[in-house]
């Protein structure tokens, strides 16, 4: 039974149309992957999506869990991203999860990483909006790195200078590094220091025992150390002592000046203390005075017995006797 050309033509059109329909259906199904009901949608907004495209992977804790379904500009600072997530992730993603945009390797395509949030939160439902966190873009990172590099260069320069001067044997550290004697000296010093510290420890121990002794109550030291009133008195006394010593010092200074003046000056004392001839004269004068006094006494005796003055002396004796009598 041979088919007519008309029938063949119709079948041809049917087959071609059928093929086109299959391709269209496959395309539409490919775009609306949740048509099989094994995915749900999550939304988030970013300020900058860094070249994210539809179909890029979505990861949760490093596992591929879905793809980017749609990217839409809301306004000049917000871009809404819809993500198709496998249904089996529903019991794992919480509402406080954070979406970040990352790169899959150095030259890889962009991906969305969903990071579990801190603390407790309820689980997401289909069409939930989760918050996002914009990471520092590569350009910013490179800028920061360049500043860090400059600082590192400056730091290295300083370090170079320090190490140069350390090597040049001039400074203390340089000498320490390069001169063995210095090192030995240092070692010796350290050894001495250790001995000293040992001695100090022993001393401290002794001091401890001494202080222990001072702790006996009623002793002077204990009173001094523990009684605040006695301490205040002691302080006052010390203050006074200090004042006195200051006065004493000024007195001593003045005395010193006086003695100096005496020594240097033309005064009688200096003359007396230094001129030996004068002393001889003085001695003789005193001897003469002695003799004169003796002779004067003799003359007075003789005068008492003289008739002219005898009456006066008798009157004196009587007055003396009278006053003694009245006293008795």
């Amino acid at each position: 039974m041979e088919k007519t050309a008309k029938e063949k033509f119709r079948l041809g059109i049917f087959v071609v149309a059928g093929t086109i329909l299959i391709v269209l259906a496959a395309y539409l199904i490919g775009n609306q992957q949740h048509i099989f009901g094994n995915t749900f949608t999550l939304h988030t907004t970013f300020k900058n999506v860094n070249g994210l495209q539809k179909g890029n992977n979505v990861r949760y804790a490093g596992i591929n869990i879905g793809t980017v379904k749609d990217i839409e500009m809301i306004n000049d600072t917000a871009i809404s991203v819809a993500m198709l997530i496998q249904n089996k992730m529903l019991p794992h993603i919480k509402k406080n999860a954070l979406a970040t945009i990352g790169s899959d390797g150095l030259v890889g395509s962009m991906i969305i990483n969903i990071v579990p949030g801190q603390g407790e939160a309820s689980l997401v439902k289909p069409e939930t909006m989760i918050s996002s966190y914009s990471r520092v873009a590569t350009a910013d990172m490179l800028n920061t790195l360049s500043v860090t590099n400059e600082n590192a260069a400056l730091l290295l320069q300083d370090l170079l200078r320090i190490s140069g001067s350390m090597n040049s044997n001039t400074g203390a550290i340089g000498r320490l590094l390069n001169e063995p004697e210095m090192a030995e000296d240092l070692q010796e010093t350290l050894r001495n220091l250790r001995l000293a510290s040992e001695n100090t420890a022993m001393m401290m121990k002794e001091l401890g025992t001494v202080i222990g002794k001072y702790n006996i109550e009623q002793s002077v030291a204990s009173t001094v150390f523990s009684d605040s009133i006695a301490g205040a008195k002691l302080r006052l006394t010390i203050d006074h002592l200090e004042n006195s010593s200051v006065h004493l010092h000024s007195v001593a200074t003045q005395l010193d000046a006086m003695v100096g003046e005496i020594k240097e000056g033309k005064g009688a004392i200096n003359y007396l203390s230094t001129d030996t001839v004068l002393v001889g004269h003085l001695e003789r004068t005193v001897q003469n005075l002695d003799q004169g006094m003796y002779r004067f006494n003799q003359n007075m005796e003789a005068l008492q017995h003289n008739f002219l003055t005898r009456g006066y002396f008798r009157k004196l004796e009587r007055k003396k006797a009278k006053s003694e009598k009245s006293r008795d």
Partner: peptide
């Protein structure tokens, strides 16, 4: 075009 569709149809038969 007609011949093309006829050929497709023939092939389908």
């Amino acid at each position: 075009i007609r011949q093309f569709f006829i050929e497709i149809g023939e092939l389908s038969y």
